[in-house]
Design a protein around this nucleic acid. Sequence first.
DNA 1: ACCGCAAGGTAGTTATATTACTTAAATATG
DNA 2: CATATTTAAGTAATATAACTACCTTGCGGT
Lengths: 276, 276
Amino acid sequence: MLDKIKSARAGLRKSEQKVADAVIEDPDACVQSSIQSLAQRALVSEPTVIRFCRALGCVGFQQFKLRLAQDLASRDAFFYQDVTAEDSSRDLAGKLLDGAIASLVQIRNQLNHEALELAIELYENCDRVELYGSGGSAVVAQDAQLKFFRLGKPAIAYSDPHIQHAAAALLDRSALIIAISHSGRSRDILRTVEIARGMRAKVISVTATKSPLAEQSDVCLSVDILEDSDVFSPVKSRLGQMVVLDILAVGVAVRGGEQMLEQLARARRAIDFKFL
Amino acid sequence: MLDKIKSARAGLRKSEQKVADAVIEDPDACVQSSIQSLAQRALVSEPTVIRFCRALGCVGFQQFKLRLAQDLASRDAFFYQDVTAEDSSRDLAGKLLDGAIASLVQIRNQLNHEALELAIELYENCDRVELYGSGGSAVVAQDAQLKFFRLGKPAIAYSDPHIQHAAAALLDRSALIIAISHSGRSRDILRTVEIARGMRAKVISVTATKSPLAEQSDVCLSVDILEDSDVFSPVKSRLGQMVVLDILAVGVAVRGGEQMLEQLARARRAIDFKFL
DNA sequence: ACCGCAAGGTAGTTATATTACTTAAATATG
DNA sequence: CATATTTAAGTAATATAACTACCTTGCGGT
């Protein structure tokens, strides 16, 4: 809804734009106020507010307020809370799940679509894929390998840094590597990427924005999750990384058109019965 | 809010309970209707509706409606949609993320807290943990191993079914196994669990409710995610499994009290700089 | 300069929420 | 057991908010 207002703004009349600005400036206040106070704040008349609502496809001010309220609610429904020693297992489950959900919501709001497009193109122009991740990120790399190797090009994941170095030294310009790291500051992964780039391989990173790793890659799919408070390893960024890689893989598959999707679905069914 | 109404219902007066029932019966209709229509539907007078709102801590009907609307919005903000070949990469990312988020929300709403308590107890009473998962679930098992081996007892994950069989045959009553499977119907995992139970080991399963695997385990942490439409492997249930296992591990840690949490946090920081 | 049309405001109407008051019911008390 | 007292719930009145119809202003075209 808020996005809708922003994109519709240009097509509105002058006074209605004032209303739009007032709403955008403080949407929370807006849902609680009446037509009058909103009109005052926007320095327009009340009917103008109504016309503004109609322009956005609502029958009236009430409906507009309702929709906006729902929009705001879904924006920050799941907020992160620290786990404490006093928590019951019930509290704890709720907090951890809310935190995980919040992190995915954050990714949804921040995902760089241009980068995604570029990443898809890099895959399409490569001959083979290698996935590098260590520690917790090794799990993500392995998961992604399962997806990518079904897309028709060889895909392999390495978790040992030394093997990563060796593998990177054997790459060429037709290779694509996907480097996964939470912080984007691990020495090992940076060295690996350096070697790979030396061999003219393309690099997609799945890591934190503006980290050294992000800087050194052709495309960075950002996963910026604060994990100060995670008791263990950064589960949340791992979830985010997995989903982002899933999006990349599905994005590639969708470029292949309906028949590729169909083929993949069949492959999946075949595996399902046997393995899971 | 809806839960609040349900729990507050008993403490309300008779006619206010009628209102509560009307709201619970059709909350969606409620947010769109006026005081009048709601009063009619509940067969009470309009002031009674207001008194009901006040009893719930709202200043008036409007605020009540707003809060209810926001509650409903956050309930099903992220609904699942099929990916089609016509989707842009932007559409696709949104759909996949919404689906992933929706699946976590579902887990939050359905998580069995008694089972979680029992699972924590099983861990506390065991001497060592083995994690079994094949295919996609191998990734989850490996991820969970990283968490559990920091809790002070040996933890190991096996992904090869034959090795799982062999390992299970070497267990005893002090061992705990965590069996991970999307469907809970894989022959291999069922056979492994059968062997393990024969050796009197305890079994926690992370799988679909009422599946054969769930039936054969001491405790089942349910992860019921429909994945008919996932193009690839079941990412969503994998996310769910990972989060559920994280909850279990953190639950165990929290039982260890403040100092255990502190110790784990320190361990995490030490690893962070080196590995991620 | 005049006409026409669109934008935006004024004033009035209707609907809606809220208050004050009254009646009915239930419980306590002599 | 009848009467007082408190509480619950409805009626009627009022204030307020939302919406409609209409009117004025300003702009672009002939």
